[in-house]
């Protein structure tokens, strides 16, 4: 293919570049700047090189928060993706019920994060919360401020309640985009319901599924507001995810250097994992071939 070399293109890209520079690159660079220096106040900085990075990567505190974060994201993805897919598959394809379903599905997505946190914080309280009070009344020992399992369960159920609809909406959009003749052809072939899902619906939805997985991964990996509001990272450090830990370090302890180093590491992890998801899911042979049954 012939390529045109022309500096005019630069001017067309310049506004976008400037915008990205001010919103992303420059703030990121100030963080990078902090992460390689130490300060004792007074606006005096000392070069420490990779010291903070070494410290963070070797600290048990980071390892624990990282593992918690991975566990949380993995659980949330493992529930929300299949659940969202299942709901999308069982949604009606035409009629008034479609709009009813879509509006109901979209409702949780319209609620701000901290409000979601507050709703569940109150809903799950042992003394006045509908959920907490009822569970304890039924004899279940449930208290998210004392019990690690309860705290995790609360956060996971809350996230599933809040975000499964996003997966549903994405999958549904992918599903209704499949032309009806595909289903007709499958019926004529005599393909089973499973085969229709496996060889028509799933491959046709693979792109939106990729987007759903990426969005849900990034969002859940960076979750902050909800655990902050509901559990405050507790009980103990049980729900202190990376982001919660980061804020504690930066604002609670005012350790700017290590916090900056942690930010950069955090950022790199999100990018790396997203990239890994993307490459795996867009690989040509992601869909293993087999036969229709």
């Amino acid at each position: 293919m012939q390529k045109t070399h022309d500096h005019k293109a630069l001017w067309l890209v310049a506004p976008a570049l400037l915008l990205v520079a001010f919103t992303a690159v420059i703030p990121l660079m100030t963080v990078v700047n902090y992460s390689v220096q130490d300060t004792f106040g007074n606006n005096q900085f000392f070069w420490v090189g990779a010291e903070w990075y070494r410290e963070i990567l070797q600290s048990d505190r980071f390892h624990a928060a990282f593992l918690r974060q991975i566990a949380f994201s993995a659980t949330v993805l493992a529930i929300e993706i299949p659940l969202g897919l299942a709901i999308a598959l069982s949604m009606p394809k035409k009629g008034i019920s479609v709009s009813v379903c879509l509006v109901l599905m979209a409702l949780p997505l319209l609620i701000p994060w901290n409000v979601v946190g507050t709703i569940w914080q109150i809903f799950a309280r042992v003394d006045i919360g509908l959920l907490g009070y009822t569970l304890n009344g039924l004899g279940v020992d449930y208290n998210y401020t004392q019990n690690v399992g309860a705290a995790w369960a609360t956060l996971i159920i809350m996230d599933v309640w809040h975000w499964t609809s996003l997966v549903v909406l994405l999958c549904y959009a992918g599903l209704v985009a499949i032309p009806p003749v595909y289903y007709q052809a499958a019926r004529i072939d005599g393909a089973s319901r499973w085969a229709v899902f496996r060889y028509i619906e799933l491959p046709k939805m693979s792109r939106v599924l990729l987007i759903a997985v990426l969005l849900r991964f990034m969002d859940s990996f960076m979750i902050y507001t909800e655990p902050f509001v509901v559990t405050g990272g507790g009980p103990g450090n049980a729900t202190t995810f990376l982001s919660v830990d980061l804020v504690k370090m930066a604002i609670g302890q005012f350790d700017l250097g290590p916090a900056a180093a942690l930010s950069v590491i955090y950022f790199l992890i999100v990018i790396l994992v997203s990239w890994a998801f993307y490459t795996i899911m867009t690989r040509e042979d992601f869909e293993p071939s087999g036969g229709v049954r």
Binding site: P179, V181, Y182, A185, D189, G190, A191, S192, A195, Y199, I200, L202, P203, K204, E287, S289, G290, G291, V292, R293
Partner: peptide, 20 residues
């Protein structure tokens, strides 16, 4: 419309009714 199973090879596409 050209209706084939997108994730299957051409061979498997042609074979699909026979596999069933």
């Amino acid at each position: 419309q050209f209706v084939n199973y997108p994730s299957l090879s051409v061979f498997e596409n042609i074979a699909s009714p026979l596999r069933v």
